[in-house]
Amino acid sequence: MILYTPLSEQDIFPTEQTSYDSCQTIQVNGRMVQAERLDDGSYRVVQLLSTDPQDYLNSAFTPGEIIK
């Protein structure tokens, strides 16, 4: 199916609310982390939101890390 339209993709296929809800910004050890909530209640780090370059060397904040 090809849709010829000036509308954006989201206007035609709205994103489900659940995908918005699973992505959250949480505080871990005083650092803001964007994390994805997993089924067992833990979080998986998506992105670290920090301006300190040294934080990015901390293995606890690397993307993919599981936060209990």
Partner: peptide
């Protein structure tokens, strides 16, 4: 991963789309 002392220079990364009043889908 290596560790290093505190940095006096901080980095502000502006990556991807700049999101304002409208929240974009998580992808």
């Amino acid at each position: 991963v290596p560790t290093a002392p505190d940095s006096n220079i901080h980095v502000l990364s502006v990556i991807g789309q700049i999101e304002g009043h409208v929240q974009l889908p998580p992808q």
